[in-house]
Design a protein around this nucleic acid. Structure first.
Lengths: 237, 237
DNA sequence: TTGCATAACTTGTATATACATGTTATACTT
DNA sequence: AAGTATAACATGTATATACAAGTTATGCAA
């Protein structure tokens, strides 16, 4: 059975995105929505809570749900989105070149990052992202060898995520990210068009599967003028 | 009546933080928790879903809830946290100096940021944050005058948030944030100890009340070496 | 011993009901 | 006309039940 509350959620998102309910307008009440979608109130509430979590609406007790303006700071880059999805959304002229792809026996440094045992193997992929002909992002990915046994070279030029979720059948669960600013390494200077920039923005991500197993560590190194991160945050209860 | 699911949520968080259930261990099953807390399963599930949202646990169907290691990238700075709360958590030697505090008739620029009508008034606060004797953060806050009628100078040296949520009785609902890197302005150069850094990290935040009214715009300008942002993200369904 | 079906767990989805609590418009009272 | 009580409606919390679906241990059969 298709999950009703997810179907409703996506339908509501579509309605907001196509301005059926414009910014600052009110959604139909929960009771009305139960009639529209022929379902129970709790199911509607699950869908609405997803909308609230993802910054589409604000629920106000006694009044209803009001549509939030997401374009104010433009689209959220937050969440777990791959470079390819992002580029497609923005319709940028982008290219990905694989600088390096190797199956390594994890060094101490990699072992501590991926938390694998001694003598464990891992994939190391190094890629350069080019936007409008300028090399602006250097991605260094490490995958746990036990979880990702094969990583064909041609896949790396495309979307590794599509391969991992589609071909291998793994499902990503969550990610922990850290954003800091560093001085460029020699590697950064070689592979990026830094043009005098004396800093790079580094996003370090630990990516976990649905069963909470760590399977990837990534360092995404950006030229500072092409970096941008948008976030939506709710007050912690 | 105290909200049961929130009480349970905070109790579970405390148990995780005090290592009653260490990283990678399993929480008691939902059924066991209903007995422990003498409540229904749905109430337990509400609390557990909050834990999952905030990166404390990963729920795995058929198995149970596993505790996530949050210290891997250390605590999340994400969410809506004030400088004061942050400094207290980290036990840093910090100081806040008010550079400027004025009640202004909104200029075009401020009006578009705060989305207020023509001739509306707003508070403009400019503060420098000093950590270990070094001026590393420049905060520029704008508050909608209609919502925050008074803003005593002594409050600005302390926590404006405590004042707004405590004294005025407003409740913050959510925030939209954007992180980018800019070249330092003349103002940055005057008020920050940039020591040759040629970039500043800028966090622009639009902060909304519980009823979705925009009431604050903030630019937090950081010296890049003292900037750090940690995020927890779940896969979008 | 090995393999497999099954039972006994786990969490996920959908529904229903009751009442609490906040908001707003209505109608009544002063 | 102004203020106030009230009714109608909104969302929030708590509980119960039923079944779906994934995981694991048990025990039987080959």
């Amino acid at each position: 059975m298709q999950k009703k509350y997810l179907t409703i959620y996506h339908d509501l998102v579509k309605n907001i995105q196509t301005n059926v309910w414009p910014t600052a307008s009110m959604l139909p009440s929960e009771k009305e929505l139960t009639i529209t979608y022929d379902t129970s109130r709790e199911t509607i509430r699950k869908a609405l809570n997803l909308l609230a979590q993802n910054g589409y609406i604000q629920k106000i007790r006694g009044k209803g749900s009001i549509v939030i303006d997401r374009k104010k700071l433009s689209f959220p880059v937050s969440g777990i989105t791959s470079f390819k999805e992002l580029a497609n959304n923005l319709q940028l002229d982008t290219k990905t070149s694989v600088v390096n792809l190797e199956y390594i026996t994890a060094t101490d440094q990699v072992r501590s990052l991926l938390e694998v045992e001694e003598q464990e193997d891992a994939w190391k992929v190094c890629r350069v992202r080019t936007i409008d002909g300028v090399r602006v992002i250097l991605d260094k990915d490490y995958f746990v060898g036990e979880i990702v046994p094969k990583l064909p070279a041609n896949i790396c030029e495309e979307s590794i995520y599509e391969y991992i979720e589609g071909e291998i059948g793994l499902t990503i669960g969550f990610a922990q990210k850290e954003i800091i600013v560093e001085e460029p390494t020699e590697e950064d200077k070689v592979f990026l068009d830094l043009e005098g920039f004396s800093n790079v923005v580094v996003i370090k991500s630990l990516i976990y599967l649905e069963d909470a197993r760590l399977f990837q560590y990534t360092e995404s190194r950006h030229r500072p003028d092409r970096f941008r991160f948008v976030d939506f945050a709710r007050r912690i209860k």
